[in-house]
Amino acid sequence: MSDSIYIEHAIQNHPRVLDLTTRYPNARRIFCERYNEVFNPAAQNFRLQKNNPALILAQKQSGFVLPVPEGYGVGGEHNFYFSHMLNCVYDCRYCFLQGMYRSANYVLFVNYEDFECEIDKTIGAAGDAECWFFSGYDCDSLALEGLSGFVTHFLKFFAERPRAYLELRTKSTQINSLRSHEALSNVVVAYSFTPQAISSALEHKVPSVEKRIAVLQELQQLGWPVALRFDPLIYCENYQFYYKELFAQVFAVLDSQKIHSVSLGPFRLPKSFYNNISRLYPDEALFAGPLALNKGMVSYPEEFEQEMLTFCEKEILEHVPAEIFFPCVAV
C-alpha cells in the first residue's frame, strides 16, 4: 500500500475516502485542490515514482464514458471505455501508460455513481442496441480491488442491466470479488497473456502465466464468461515456440466451447509515448528490437508484425472457432 495519499479537498468527506483513510491510518495525507496538480506537472520521473507510487483520491469531473479507439472491441455494436483509475500496480514495460502519464501515482476516482449515471445515459441513447463497456484501459480492472472495491460495486450495477456488457481486463489473480458474486452472463473477465519467458522479462510484478490460467479455469467453472487477450504480441527469437507453448498451456485447461472471445493485438505505441518510455528505459531489450515508425505509431516492421499475426492466428484457430476470434484488437 502507498505510504502517501493525496486527497482532493472537495471529497475529503466522501464515504470512499473516509473508508480508505480509516483503513490506512499510517499513510501520510496530503490535500490538494485538483488531482492534476500532483499528477500532471512536467518534471516528474515515472520510473523513479514506480518505486513508491502514492495514491491520489480524486473526483472525476467529465469524460466518464468514452468511445473506444477504432478497432477495439469484440463484436459489440457500440463500444465504450471508462476508467475509474489511472495507472497500475503492475509494471509492464510495453504499457502505454508509462508514455502517456508523467506520474506513476495511482489516481482513484471515487465518484462511481457519476460513472454509473453516464453509463445509464449511454445505454439509453443506444436504444435496443448492445453496448459494451470496457474497463481496464487505463489500469488493471482487478489488481487494486482490495483498495477500490470497484468490481464489487459495478457487478451489482451490471447485474441490473443485462443489455449492457462489461469487460474486466486484467492480469490479476485477486478474484475474491468474483468468487463471492453469482456469475453474470454480461460480465466478461478477460485475461491478457504473453508467454512466460516474455512475461518474466517484461511484465514486472504480474502473476505467473500458470497462476493466471488456474484462476481463469476457476472463473470458467464458476460460470463467468472468460476471454483471452494475447495482447500485445511481442517479437523475440523463437517467438513461435513460446506462443505455441502458451496456447497449448491455456487451451489444455480451459473449455474452448465456453470461451467468450479470443483476441490478438500487435505491439503499437504512439510515437510520443514510445519516445517517453524509451527515454525512461534506454536499457530495455524490448526497445532494442527491430521497430519501425508507421503513420505516427511505433511498431514492429510490417513483415514481422504480419508474420506473427498469421502464425498466432493459425495456432489459435486450431483451438477455438473463428466466430469468437478477433484477430486485431487495437492496443
Partner: peptide, 14 residues
C-alpha cells in the same frame, strides 16, 4: 503549490 514526490520510503515526518 508544489508537491515534492515522496519516492523514498522513510520514517521522517512530512
Amino acid at each position: 503549490s508544489w508537491y515534492p514526490p515522496q519516492v523514498l520510503k522513510h520514517t521522517l515526518s512530512t
